[in-house]
């Protein structure tokens, strides 16, 4: 059995007719149950890669296989696949006109056809896990950044995804709120969730990642275990990147 949940083959993303090459030939795979952290300087294409995995960015060239199915094929029903790929954004993107419980139950009730009661029960269980069940009637504007991001994570989990994509989930947070979000992500990793995380939190990469991918200028420069990447970097670019970031 193929245990790759996602396979990326020769992925390219060019803008303005090839003048900007955000991704310039990416090959990688994500194994089931694995936590992969993508690091790299800004503008290296790591967010573009992550957003390509659920086709929020449509690639110029190349293939993405999800559970063996080519989701870049024109006939694919991408919505079906996206239901199994949760995504968490840098800016939370909670729905401001709905309270927390509605934010979480909207997709399960409208897409999966769950009953209102079932969806609420599931949402409340998840809220208990992240310690926010007492805020279930609150609106997003009443929450702190860290709380919003924790809600965004459990909102995605309500769809019972097979893989979770994190696009710089802590970059828009005040420093003292980063920890609470990373804790939730770490718990999720322990439960065996497949995760792809773009982040600047090198501590998280070191501690939680099974594999780290270092990208620069739209290509993968190095990949390996956190130990390989952080303690034994091979390329000059990775060495210079590591010398500039605080670990």
């Amino acid at each position: 059995m193929n245990d790759n949940i996602i396979e990326v083959k020769g992925l390219k993303k060019h803008y303005t007719g090839g003048a900007v090459r955000a991704l310039d030939g990416i090959d990688c795979e994500i194994r089931r149950g694995e936590v992969v952290v993508i690091v790299g300087p800004s503008g290296s294409g790591k967010s573009t890669l992550l957003r390509s995995l659920n086709l929020l960015e449509v690639p110029t060239e190349g293939q993405i296989l999800f559970n063996g199915a080519d989701i870049t094929a024109p006939k694919t029903n991408i919505n079906k696949h996206r239901q199994k790929m949760g995504m968490v954004f840098q800016h939370f993107n909670l729905f401001p006109n709905m309270n927390i419980i509605k934010n979480m139950t909207l997709a399960p009730t409208k897409i999966l056809g769950k009953s209102e009661a079932d969806a609420e029960k599931q949402a409340e269980e998840l809220l208990v896990k992240v310690g926010l069940v007492d805020r279930k009637e609150a609106y997003p504007s009443q929450l702190s950044g860290g709380q919003k991001q924790r809600i965004a994570i459990v909102r995605a989990l309500c769809m019972e995804p097979e893989v979770m994509l994190f696009d710089e989930p802590t970059s828009a947070l005040d420093p003292e709120m980063v920890g609470e979000v990373l804790d939730v992500m770490q718990d999720l990793a322990k439960q065996g969730m497949t995760m792809v995380v773009v982040t600047h939190e090198m501590g998280f990469a070191k501690e939680v990642a099974d594999r780290v991918i270092f990208m620069d200028e739209g290509v993968i420069i190095e990949e390996g275990t956190p130990d390989d990447i952080f303690n034994n970097p091979q390329s000059e670019r990775l060495k210079s990147f590591l010398s500039k970031v605080l670990i």
């Binding site: 996206r82 954004f89 409208k110």
Partner: peptide
């Protein structure tokens, strides 16, 4: 905000 579209689409809508 375009993020609202993306959030909706990423949930599978």
């Amino acid at each position: 905000d375009n993020g609202q579209f993306e959030a909706g689409r990423s949930l599978g809508f």
